[in-house]
Simulated assay, not measured.
Amino acid sequence: MKKVIIGTVLLLTTALSAFSQTKNITVAGRVIEDDTKEPAVQATVQLLSLPDSAFAAGIATTAQGYFTLPKVQAGKYVLKVSYIGFQPTVLPLQLSAQNPNKNVGTLALKTDAVMLAEAVITAEAPQVQVVEDTLMYNSSAYRTPEGAMLEELVKKLPGAEIDDDGNVKINGKELKKIMVDGKEFFGGDVKTGLKNLPVEMIDKLKTYDKQSDLARITGIDDGEEETVLDLTVKKGMNRGWFGNADAAVGTE
């Protein structure tokens, strides 16, 4: 009888331990006002899980602008910060059990000011939008030098990293291909695309995971996915520029 009781206790302890470990990651940081550098007091901080943007955790910032969210499990998330009178900030996050204490640093919120000129209201485009499992970036929301190539723009995207060899990671996942309007460009070669695609022709950027080439050819899902960067070209710029590119690099 004692063995049965002891075994049951051990089983319950193991189960409770495993359950508690599913939510063992904290996300912390600080929120300030970009113009004054003052702390954003009682700003709303939300952690939304992908791909469905379901609410995972939330909290308000302290008097000094700091926040520490309740623990969550590993996975893909979007951190959303809202504050009255300021533009919402969205930050994609890839949380891993190997890093249980994720600090996003200081987030500076920009004033939600609009410019009135000839009865036309304009506002700064949102940096990131989440549509199901796709992250969409507005090119106009990021400043790059005149004549800059795609590489300069990618460096400014939240969650993107480029190493010294030109390899790109977005939210911790290696970028496998570059596409233009849903089609592979430069054979999908990432490094070539980064060096040769002008920022001025790009309207939006999308990142998402898609099936591998083998899965698409055979029709059999092999479980392998590749992260791609899909560019949307500004109207009127695709025909002339791509014609020049074809002449320069040949039919291949």
Rank of each mutant, 00 (worst) to 15 (best):
K210R: 13
A148G: 07
K37G: 05
F86N: 09
A97K: 12
Q21N: 12
T14Y: 14
G182D: 05
R239F: 14
Y142C: 08
I121D: 02
P92N: 06
Q21H: 13
A141K: 07
K173H: 09
V190P: 01
K204G: 03
T207G: 01
S96H: 09
L79C: 01
E252F: 14
T232A: 11
L153V: 00
R216V: 10
M179A: 08
F185S: 10
S49N: 07
L50C: 03
F242Q: 13
V114P: 00
A43Y: 07
D209R: 11
P70C: 02
D163T: 09
Q42D: 07
D181M: 11
G219P: 13
V4R: 13
M1I: 06
K195F: 05
E174C: 00
D34E: 14
E152S: 15
V130F: 07
L48Y: 09
D165K: 15
G250Q: 07
P92M: 01
L12T: 08
N196M: 11
V228W: 08
K2F: 14
A148P: 13
V128D: 04
M179V: 04
V154H: 06
K195Q: 14
D164T: 14
G193F: 06
L229E: 05
V233W: 04
K206W: 04
E161I: 11
N171H: 01
T22S: 11
